[in-house]
Nucleic acid binder design. Structure first.
Length: 114
DNA sequence: AACGTGACACAGC
DNA sequence: AGCTGTGCCACGT
């Protein structure tokens, strides 16, 4: 059998993060804190960002921004502009790395995903 | 084994 | 109304 990469139990947290991010509807965005809150680790919003650090393919990490709607993680993409480009492609307006109408397109997993 | 770092968030000034 | 400081948890060196 193929070498299954063993993941420590606490890595389950990362997996949950990826699952939630994958569930983000197109044209919507969420914040690290919202995901952390949904997972019950509101205090560990940083961990969410760390989880995205190893974001596997298929994870729309560009839909995840900080609570201010700022594209803080754009520097971690292939190109600094990749994040903004992807968001604009989904119909999200961005000005100065900041999402416009953030509160309107904000997608809270704890509220809408139930 | 310990210290420093990091894609955040909130309270205080 | 914007900036600074602190808390938080996991990972790398």
């Amino acid at each position: 059998m193929p070498p299954i990469k063993k993941k420590p139990a606490h890595s389950n947290f990362f997996d949950d993060v990826y699952a939630v991010v994958k569930l983000i509807p197109k044209g919507r965005v969420t914040s690290y804190g919202a995901i952390a809150n949904f997972l019950g680790t509101r205090s560990s919003a940083r961990m969410v960002g760390w989880a995205m650090h190893g974001c596997p393919s298929g994870i729309p990490a560009h839909r995840v921004v900080n609570s201010a709607g700022l594209l803080t993680g754009k520097h971690h993409f292939k190109t600094p502009s990749a994040m903004q480009e992807a968001l604009e492609k989904e119909g999200i307006a961005i000005i100065s790395d900041k999402i416009k109408h953030f509160s309107e397109i904000f997608w809270d997993p704890a509220r809408e995903l139930v």
